[in-house]
Structures are given as C-alpha cells and as structure tokens.
C-alpha cells in the first residue's frame, strides 16, 4: 500500500515512546470487553512506564496486568478484574498489600465514567446525573458532587469532566490519517477520542482513505483527533474484535490461575510480555493453530448504503 507522506503510521514502540511518558493518564478499554488495546498495554510494560493513571469503565485483565507490572499509581475506573473468571489478583495485592506498589483507587460507575468523558468531550466542567445518589461511590469520589438542580430543585450528582492525557483506542480499520471505522458495542470510545488530549489509534487493518470516506456514519473517530496510527493485527487479543477474531476465553481463565500468586504472575509476565520483543513475538508464542480457532467462522457482511446523490 502506498503511504502518504503525511501518514501518521508508527510502530507501537514508536507511538508509546513518543506520546505516553511516565506519569500520563491513559484511557484504555473504552469499548468495554471488545477492542481492548492489549498490545499497547504490553508495550507500556516493556518500556517501563511508571506512575500511570489508568482510566476506563472496565478493562478486563489489561489493568490488572499493568498494576502487577508496577506501572500504575492510580486507577480511575468503574471495575477492575477478570470479566469471565472473577477478581484481579494483582489489583488485590496492590491495594491490600502495596505489592508491587500501592495503587490509589478512585471508584466510578460505568455511567459516571461515560459522563465524565462526555463532559470533557463537550467542553463543559460537569454533567448531571441521578446515578450514584445514596452510594459510597458518590461519598468517596471527589469528582462526583451532589447538588440541587437550578431547574426544578431535584437532588443530582455533578460528574466532573475527565480529560485523559492519552486515549489508546483499538478499531477494526483506519486510514493512515487515523480516520477510523469501528463497529459492535463501542462503550465510551467515541467520547474518549474527543475527551483526550491525544489519541493513539490501533487498527487491525490500514485501508485506503476511500474505504473510510465511503461510509462517514461509521467513522467513529475523525483523523484530525489522532496523533498516531499503529497497524497491529491481533492487537486486541485475548479480547474480541467483531469481524476479525473471537474472545479467547481460555486465555482469560489461564491468566486467572497464573496470576493468583505473585511468583506465577511474574512468570506469566516474562512469558507473554517481557520475554517477547513486540506483538509479532507474542503472536508467534500464541501460535497459528490457536489463532485459527479464534478466527471468523462465518462472515456476516452488512448491506452497503448508498451515499449517492
């Protein structure tokens, strides 16, 4: 494929090195259980980033891995664990014992994470909600503040705008400028791209700009918001990418067992992250056979729409 001169394409190593210094606040897992940017998270670990603030509604096991690797100072999220297997053992060790380091938890709910990002995306200081009234999430999170509505006088909660330094967003396809198509459940991905100061886009496929422009309603992220585009096939494994590969359930359950003890987790980390140079090395370890079992068994193409006039 011919790459334009002003292409934003970088390798994952380059994108992380350039745009995610230690101390950054980073939004990941914005689409909930699919499109989780595991390849980017593993590169953060390899480049030894420290004192990160992780932002997301949930992140399945990615946040647990970054916490266990010692990269994280603070988590601002609704949920951290292993969606199909249960708790996150690294989260527990960090919060209960300070191992490998203490992590500060600022607890949200999914909807209040969405509203915090939506407020930043809209450029307003807060958005109101009825959610969290009466809860200790409201009582303990300094970014959630109860107030009386100036219209009607009801009790409401002000959710303070949250603008991450960087959003790392995985999508199905993008052009070299970062104009991106994504489909399936998108969680808070669209607001995340608008709320963050920078966006690193990770795509399964890089396509010609005409492909993206053919269906502008599917362009969830316009390229003008994007700083870097990384072409990383299978970059969301073990999470699923609709139309590309399914969820590797066994991988999540293996991780659950292998993260129960700190020593076992360190071995897991060496095997899958520190001991491989990049995503290509990870995929080699994963093996073609396992990838074959996760691939699309039956395609289901959407009908084309006519933008003609």
């Amino acid at each position: 494929m011919a790459i334009e001169q002003n292409s934003k394409l970088l390798t994952m190593g380059e994108a992380i090195a350039r745009y995610v210094p230690s101390g950054s606040s980073v939004l990941m897992g914005a689409a909930m259980e699919q499109l989780i940017p595991f390849a980017a998270g593993h590169e953060l670990i390899r480049q030894d980033r420290r004192d990160l603030t992780l932002i997301g509604p949930i992140s399945d096991i990615l946040f647990d891995q970054l916490i266990g690797a010692g990269c994280v100072a603070r988590v601002e999220a609704a949920w951290v664990g292993n969606v199909s297997a249960g708790v996150g053992y690294n989260l527990r060790r960090a919060t209960e014992q300070g191992v490998p380091r203490p992590v500060e938890m600022i607890d949200y709910t999914n909807f209040t994470v969405a509203l915090a990002l939506h407020a930043a995306a809209l450029g307003v200081p807060f958005l109101p909600t009825r959610s969290t009234l009466g809860s200790d999430v409201l009582a303990r999170n300094p970014h959630l503040v109860e107030f009386r509505s100036p219209v009607g006088g009801e009790k409401l909660v002000a959710v303070e705008a949250l603008a991450p330094d960087v959003a790392i967003l995985h999508v199905q396809r993008a052009d070299a400028q970062g104009n991106a198509h994504a489909w399936g459940g998108l969680g808070v991905q669209i607001d995340g791209a608008r709320a963050a100061r920078r966006v690193i886009l990770v795509a399964e496929e890089i396509v010609e700009p005409e492909v993206i422009a053919s269906d502008p309603n599917r362009t969830e992220i316009p390229g003008m918001l994007v700083s870097a585009v990384v072409h990383e096939p299978w970059g969301a494994h073990p999470s699923p990418v609709q139309g590309y590969y399914g969820r590797d359930h066994a991988f999540f359950h293996e991780y659950h067992e292998r993260s129960r003890k700190r020593e076992d987790f360190e071995n897991w980390l060496r095997e899958w992250v520190l001991g491989v140079e990049n995503r290509a090395g990870y995929l080699e370890r994963l093996g073609a056979e396992r990838r074959g079992t996760l691939g699309v068994r039956e395609h289901a193409w959407s009908a084309a729409v006519d933008f003609g006039y």
Partner: peptide, 25 residues
C-alpha cells in the same frame, strides 16, 4: 461469556455507545 462477545453483537437490534443505552436506563 461477556456482553461484547461477537455472537451478542451480530444480529443486534442496536450497537453503539454506552450513553445510548444508559440514557434509557
């Protein structure tokens, strides 16, 4: 196993943003 598993998104009535569902809630 999760709500974002591909079988739950194919053939869905709607796929999109969290706020579009939370708004109804």
């Amino acid at each position: 196993y999760t709500m974002a598993d591909p079988p739950n998104q194919r053939g869905a009535t709607y796929c999109g943003e969290m706020t579009r569902v939370m708004s109804l809630l």
